[in-house]
Amino acid sequence: MTRSGQHATAGRAASAIHDLGYKRYLGTRRPQSTRWRVLVKNVVSTSWRGWWRMKMWVVGCAITTVGIGVPMYISRDRIFDELVRRGVTIRWADALLPMSFRFFPWFAFILAAATAAGTVARDMRAGAFEFYFSRPVRPLDYMLGKVVGSALVVSTAMLAGPLLLSLFRVGLSRELDEILPTLSMVPRTALVGLLGSVAFAVVALAFSSLSSRPRITTAIWVAFYLLFGGVAEGLSHALRSPDLAALSLPRAVEGFAFGLFQVSSAQVPGFDVTPGIAVSYGSLLAYTAVGLVILNVRVRQAERAGLGGG
Protein backbone atom coordinates (compact mmCIF):
# COMPACT_ATOMS: atom_id res chain seq x y z
CA MET A 1 0.00 0.00 0.00
CA THR A 2 1.29 3.45 -0.79
CA ARG A 3 1.99 6.05 1.77
CA SER A 4 -1.15 7.98 0.87
CA GLY A 5 -3.14 4.79 0.80
CA GLN A 6 -2.14 4.03 4.37
CA HIS A 7 -3.07 7.52 5.40
CA ALA A 8 -6.36 7.24 3.59
CA THR A 9 -7.30 4.13 5.50
CA ALA A 10 -6.39 5.82 8.75
CA GLY A 11 -8.30 8.91 7.70
CA ARG A 12 -11.49 7.05 6.95
CA ALA A 13 -11.29 5.37 10.30
CA ALA A 14 -10.86 8.70 12.07
CA SER A 15 -13.90 10.42 10.60
CA ALA A 16 -16.60 9.35 8.23
CA ILE A 17 -16.22 10.32 4.60
CA HIS A 18 -19.59 10.11 2.93
CA ASP A 19 -19.61 8.72 -0.54
CA LEU A 20 -22.78 8.14 -2.51
CA GLY A 21 -20.85 5.74 -4.70
CA TYR A 22 -18.36 6.69 -7.32
CA LYS A 23 -18.23 5.52 -10.92
CA ARG A 24 -15.77 6.69 -13.54
CA TYR A 25 -17.61 8.73 -16.19
CA LEU A 26 -17.29 6.88 -19.47
CA GLY A 27 -19.89 8.75 -21.53
CA THR A 28 -19.22 11.32 -24.19
CA ARG A 29 -18.60 14.96 -23.36
CA ARG A 30 -20.35 17.89 -24.95
CA PRO A 31 -18.26 19.29 -27.84
CA GLN A 32 -16.03 22.11 -26.74
CA SER A 33 -17.51 24.45 -29.36
CA THR A 34 -20.95 24.27 -27.71
CA ARG A 35 -19.96 25.03 -24.12
CA TRP A 36 -20.98 28.68 -24.50
CA ARG A 37 -24.59 27.52 -24.54
CA VAL A 38 -24.19 26.36 -20.94
CA LEU A 39 -23.28 29.94 -20.07
CA VAL A 40 -26.33 31.27 -21.93
CA LYS A 41 -28.56 28.97 -19.92
CA ASN A 42 -26.89 30.08 -16.71
CA VAL A 43 -27.31 33.80 -17.51
CA VAL A 44 -31.02 33.38 -18.28
CA SER A 45 -31.77 31.12 -15.31
CA THR A 46 -29.87 33.39 -12.90
CA SER A 47 -31.68 36.46 -14.22
CA TRP A 48 -35.05 34.79 -13.84
CA ARG A 49 -34.59 34.49 -10.07
CA GLY A 50 -36.38 36.86 -7.75
CA TRP A 51 -39.04 39.38 -8.72
CA TRP A 52 -37.01 42.51 -9.07
CA ARG A 53 -34.36 41.36 -11.47
CA MET A 54 -36.42 40.18 -14.42
CA LYS A 55 -39.92 38.92 -13.72
CA MET A 56 -41.35 42.26 -12.65
CA TRP A 57 -40.16 44.01 -15.81
CA VAL A 58 -41.35 41.21 -18.01
CA VAL A 59 -44.75 41.63 -16.42
CA GLY A 60 -44.44 45.37 -17.08
CA CYS A 61 -43.69 44.61 -20.72
CA ALA A 62 -46.68 42.33 -20.94
CA ILE A 63 -48.91 45.08 -19.51
CA THR A 64 -47.41 47.58 -21.94
CA THR A 65 -47.99 45.20 -24.82
CA VAL A 66 -51.64 44.84 -23.82
CA GLY A 67 -51.79 48.60 -23.23
CA ILE A 68 -50.69 49.25 -26.80
CA GLY A 69 -52.65 46.35 -28.24
CA VAL A 70 -55.99 47.58 -26.88
CA PRO A 71 -55.96 51.01 -28.63
CA MET A 72 -54.48 49.27 -31.66
CA TYR A 73 -57.63 47.17 -31.79
CA ILE A 74 -60.18 49.79 -30.76
CA SER A 75 -58.88 52.54 -33.03
CA ARG A 76 -57.53 50.32 -35.77
CA ASP A 77 -59.36 52.17 -38.54
CA ARG A 78 -58.90 55.69 -37.24
CA ILE A 79 -56.32 57.89 -38.90
CA PHE A 80 -53.28 58.80 -36.85
CA ASP A 81 -52.73 62.34 -38.12
CA GLU A 82 -49.30 62.93 -36.70
CA LEU A 83 -47.50 60.06 -38.42
CA VAL A 84 -47.05 59.77 -42.15
CA ARG A 85 -45.66 57.15 -44.51
CA ARG A 86 -44.30 58.63 -47.72
CA GLY A 87 -46.38 61.74 -47.08
CA VAL A 88 -49.62 59.82 -46.42
CA THR A 89 -51.18 59.61 -43.00
CA ILE A 90 -51.52 56.09 -41.60
CA ARG A 91 -53.95 54.29 -39.31
CA TRP A 92 -53.51 53.79 -35.58
CA ALA A 93 -53.08 50.07 -36.15
CA ASP A 94 -49.99 50.77 -38.26
CA ALA A 95 -48.67 53.72 -36.30
CA LEU A 96 -48.58 52.17 -32.85
CA LEU A 97 -46.15 49.42 -33.78
CA PRO A 98 -43.15 51.65 -34.64
CA MET A 99 -44.13 54.03 -31.86
CA SER A 100 -43.98 51.18 -29.35
CA PHE A 101 -40.20 51.35 -29.71
CA ARG A 102 -40.35 54.48 -27.62
CA PHE A 103 -41.74 52.52 -24.66
CA PHE A 104 -40.16 49.09 -24.77
CA PRO A 105 -36.53 50.34 -24.58
CA TRP A 106 -37.33 51.62 -21.08
CA PHE A 107 -37.93 48.08 -19.93
CA ALA A 108 -34.88 46.91 -21.85
CA PHE A 109 -32.84 49.56 -20.06
CA ILE A 110 -34.09 48.42 -16.65
CA LEU A 111 -33.53 44.76 -17.49
CA ALA A 112 -30.00 45.52 -18.67
CA ALA A 113 -29.37 47.49 -15.48
CA ALA A 114 -30.71 44.69 -13.30
CA THR A 115 -28.80 41.91 -15.05
CA ALA A 116 -26.13 42.65 -17.67
CA ALA A 117 -24.71 45.88 -16.20
CA GLY A 118 -23.29 44.05 -13.17
CA THR A 119 -22.58 40.62 -14.63
CA VAL A 120 -18.87 40.74 -15.45
CA ALA A 121 -18.17 42.87 -12.36
CA ARG A 122 -19.80 40.23 -10.17
CA ASP A 123 -17.70 37.56 -11.84
CA MET A 124 -14.54 39.59 -11.22
CA ARG A 125 -15.42 40.14 -7.58
CA ALA A 126 -16.25 36.48 -6.97
CA GLY A 127 -13.08 35.23 -8.71
CA ALA A 128 -15.24 33.46 -11.27
CA PHE A 129 -12.69 33.81 -14.06
CA GLU A 130 -10.55 31.21 -12.32
CA PHE A 131 -13.63 29.02 -12.23
CA TYR A 132 -14.26 29.49 -15.94
CA PHE A 133 -10.79 29.46 -17.41
CA SER A 134 -9.50 26.46 -15.48
CA ARG A 135 -12.14 24.61 -17.51
CA PRO A 136 -12.36 24.22 -21.28
CA VAL A 137 -13.87 27.68 -21.65
CA ARG A 138 -12.26 30.19 -23.99
CA PRO A 139 -12.67 33.94 -23.56
CA LEU A 140 -14.76 33.78 -26.74
CA ASP A 141 -17.07 31.19 -25.15
CA TYR A 142 -17.43 33.38 -22.08
CA MET A 143 -18.25 36.45 -24.16
CA LEU A 144 -20.63 34.60 -26.44
CA GLY A 145 -22.43 33.07 -23.48
CA LYS A 146 -22.79 36.38 -21.67
CA VAL A 147 -23.78 38.40 -24.74
CA VAL A 148 -26.34 35.91 -26.05
CA GLY A 149 -27.70 35.27 -22.55
CA SER A 150 -28.03 38.96 -21.72
CA ALA A 151 -29.48 39.72 -25.16
CA LEU A 152 -32.10 37.05 -24.58
CA VAL A 153 -33.00 38.62 -21.25
CA VAL A 154 -33.22 42.12 -22.76
CA SER A 155 -35.16 40.77 -25.72
CA THR A 156 -38.07 39.85 -23.48
CA ALA A 157 -38.69 43.61 -23.47
CA MET A 158 -37.20 44.82 -26.72
CA LEU A 159 -38.29 41.97 -28.97
CA ALA A 160 -41.09 39.93 -27.45
CA GLY A 161 -43.60 42.77 -26.92
CA PRO A 162 -43.19 44.43 -30.33
CA LEU A 163 -43.17 41.02 -32.03
CA LEU A 164 -46.46 40.09 -30.39
CA LEU A 165 -47.91 43.43 -31.44
CA SER A 166 -46.76 42.89 -35.02
CA LEU A 167 -48.45 39.48 -35.06
CA PHE A 168 -51.53 41.08 -33.55
CA ARG A 169 -51.46 43.66 -36.31
CA VAL A 170 -51.40 40.86 -38.90
CA GLY A 171 -54.37 39.37 -37.13
CA LEU A 172 -56.28 42.62 -37.43
CA SER A 173 -56.11 42.42 -41.23
CA ARG A 174 -59.47 41.96 -42.87
CA GLU A 175 -58.42 41.11 -46.39
CA LEU A 176 -55.64 39.18 -48.09
CA ASP A 177 -54.38 42.39 -49.68
CA GLU A 178 -53.91 43.82 -46.20
CA ILE A 179 -52.22 40.72 -44.77
CA LEU A 180 -49.28 40.71 -47.16
CA PRO A 181 -48.00 44.21 -46.37
CA THR A 182 -48.63 43.78 -42.66
CA LEU A 183 -46.80 40.44 -42.69
CA SER A 184 -43.65 42.32 -43.69
CA MET A 185 -43.91 44.16 -40.38
CA VAL A 186 -43.05 40.97 -38.49
CA PRO A 187 -39.46 40.49 -39.73
CA ARG A 188 -38.87 44.25 -39.55
CA THR A 189 -40.00 44.30 -35.95
CA ALA A 190 -37.84 41.27 -35.23
CA LEU A 191 -34.83 42.96 -36.79
CA VAL A 192 -35.24 46.13 -34.73
CA GLY A 193 -35.86 44.13 -31.56
CA LEU A 194 -32.91 41.87 -32.20
CA LEU A 195 -30.42 44.60 -32.99
CA GLY A 196 -31.69 46.73 -30.11
CA SER A 197 -31.43 43.79 -27.68
CA VAL A 198 -27.88 42.99 -28.74
CA ALA A 199 -26.79 46.65 -28.56
CA PHE A 200 -28.33 47.15 -25.11
CA ALA A 201 -26.84 43.89 -23.81
CA VAL A 202 -23.36 44.46 -25.23
CA VAL A 203 -23.06 48.05 -24.03
CA ALA A 204 -24.28 47.14 -20.55
CA LEU A 205 -21.88 44.17 -20.43
CA ALA A 206 -18.99 46.34 -21.61
CA PHE A 207 -19.66 48.78 -18.77
CA SER A 208 -19.90 45.85 -16.36
CA SER A 209 -16.36 44.80 -17.30
CA LEU A 210 -14.85 48.16 -16.33
CA SER A 211 -14.77 47.54 -12.59
CA SER A 212 -15.15 44.72 -10.11
CA ARG A 213 -17.86 46.65 -8.26
CA PRO A 214 -21.31 45.89 -9.70
CA ARG A 215 -22.89 49.00 -8.20
CA ILE A 216 -20.35 51.21 -9.90
CA THR A 217 -20.76 49.55 -13.29
CA THR A 218 -24.54 49.67 -13.02
CA ALA A 219 -24.32 53.36 -12.14
CA ILE A 220 -22.15 53.93 -15.22
CA TRP A 221 -24.77 52.24 -17.41
CA VAL A 222 -27.57 54.31 -15.88
CA ALA A 223 -25.57 57.51 -16.27
CA PHE A 224 -24.73 56.68 -19.86
CA TYR A 225 -28.33 55.90 -20.70
CA LEU A 226 -30.01 58.77 -18.92
CA LEU A 227 -27.42 61.56 -18.73
CA PHE A 228 -25.36 61.03 -21.87
CA GLY A 229 -28.46 60.07 -23.85
CA GLY A 230 -30.33 63.07 -22.44
CA VAL A 231 -27.52 65.44 -23.34
CA ALA A 232 -27.39 64.03 -26.87
CA GLU A 233 -31.14 64.52 -27.28
CA GLY A 234 -30.94 68.03 -25.83
CA LEU A 235 -28.19 69.01 -28.23
CA SER A 236 -30.13 67.46 -31.07
CA HIS A 237 -33.12 69.66 -30.15
CA ALA A 238 -31.06 72.78 -29.69
CA LEU A 239 -29.06 72.36 -32.88
CA ARG A 240 -32.07 71.08 -34.83
CA SER A 241 -30.00 68.11 -35.87
CA PRO A 242 -32.07 64.91 -35.43
CA ASP A 243 -29.17 62.64 -36.37
CA LEU A 244 -27.24 63.78 -33.32
CA ALA A 245 -29.87 62.03 -31.22
CA ALA A 246 -28.58 58.69 -32.55
CA LEU A 247 -25.88 58.97 -29.88
CA SER A 248 -28.67 58.12 -27.48
CA LEU A 249 -29.19 54.35 -27.53
CA PRO A 250 -33.03 54.41 -27.27
CA ARG A 251 -33.31 57.12 -29.91
CA ALA A 252 -31.13 55.04 -32.21
CA VAL A 253 -33.47 52.07 -31.77
CA GLU A 254 -36.46 54.30 -32.41
CA GLY A 255 -34.83 55.89 -35.46
CA PHE A 256 -34.01 52.47 -36.86
CA ALA A 257 -37.61 51.32 -36.31
CA PHE A 258 -39.11 54.42 -37.89
CA GLY A 259 -36.77 54.05 -40.82
CA LEU A 260 -37.60 50.40 -41.39
CA PHE A 261 -41.32 51.10 -41.14
CA GLN A 262 -40.81 54.07 -43.45
CA VAL A 263 -42.73 56.39 -41.17
CA SER A 264 -41.91 59.98 -40.46
CA SER A 265 -42.53 61.58 -37.13
CA ALA A 266 -42.06 65.25 -37.67
CA GLN A 267 -45.47 66.20 -36.31
CA VAL A 268 -45.54 64.01 -33.25
CA PRO A 269 -44.74 66.00 -30.12
CA GLY A 270 -41.51 64.67 -28.64
CA PHE A 271 -40.71 62.58 -31.69
CA ASP A 272 -39.18 65.43 -33.65
CA VAL A 273 -35.60 64.36 -32.89
CA THR A 274 -35.86 60.86 -34.27
CA PRO A 275 -32.67 60.25 -36.25
CA GLY A 276 -32.54 58.79 -39.74
CA ILE A 277 -32.31 55.07 -40.40
CA ALA A 278 -28.73 55.03 -41.66
CA VAL A 279 -27.29 56.96 -38.77
CA SER A 280 -29.42 54.99 -36.29
CA TYR A 281 -28.29 51.68 -37.75
CA GLY A 282 -24.71 52.90 -37.76
CA SER A 283 -24.98 54.04 -34.18
CA LEU A 284 -26.35 50.68 -32.99
CA LEU A 285 -23.62 48.81 -34.87
CA ALA A 286 -20.91 51.15 -33.60
CA TYR A 287 -22.07 50.85 -29.98
CA THR A 288 -22.17 47.07 -30.36
CA ALA A 289 -18.72 46.93 -31.94
CA VAL A 290 -17.10 49.22 -29.35
CA GLY A 291 -18.81 47.30 -26.56
CA LEU A 292 -17.53 43.99 -27.91
CA VAL A 293 -13.99 45.36 -28.19
CA ILE A 294 -14.02 46.59 -24.57
CA LEU A 295 -15.51 43.33 -23.35
CA ASN A 296 -12.97 41.30 -25.31
CA VAL A 297 -10.02 43.28 -23.95
CA ARG A 298 -11.19 43.00 -20.36
CA VAL A 299 -12.02 39.30 -20.55
CA ARG A 300 -8.67 38.48 -22.16
CA GLN A 301 -6.93 40.49 -19.45
CA ALA A 302 -8.77 38.41 -16.88
CA GLU A 303 -7.74 35.19 -18.64
CA ARG A 304 -4.10 36.28 -18.77
CA ALA A 305 -4.20 37.14 -15.07
CA GLY A 306 -4.82 33.40 -14.82
CA LEU A 307 -4.63 31.25 -11.75
CA GLY A 308 -2.93 31.17 -8.43
CA GLY A 309 -1.57 33.79 -6.18
CA GLY A 310 2.03 33.11 -5.31
Binding site: R29, T46, R122, D123, A126, G127, G308
Partner: peptide, 19 residues
Protein backbone atom coordinates in the same frame (compact mmCIF):
# COMPACT_ATOMS: atom_id res chain seq x y z
CA UNK B 1 -8.95 21.98 -23.59
CA UNK B 2 -8.64 18.19 -23.45
CA UNK B 3 -6.33 18.62 -20.47
CA UNK B 4 -8.81 20.86 -18.71
CA UNK B 5 -11.56 18.27 -19.25
CA UNK B 6 -9.41 15.70 -17.48
CA UNK B 7 -7.95 17.90 -14.76
CA UNK B 8 -9.71 19.43 -11.78
CA UNK B 9 -8.47 22.70 -10.31
CA UNK B 10 -9.14 23.93 -6.79
CA UNK B 11 -8.03 27.57 -6.66
CA UNK B 12 -6.41 29.19 -3.67
CA UNK B 13 -8.58 32.29 -3.69
CA UNK B 14 -12.36 32.50 -3.57
CA UNK B 15 -13.80 31.40 -6.87
CA UNK B 16 -17.55 31.03 -7.15
CA UNK B 17 -20.46 32.60 -8.98
CA UNK B 18 -22.68 35.08 -7.23
CA UNK B 19 -26.26 33.94 -6.55
Amino acid sequence: FRIRDRVGYMPELDSYLAD
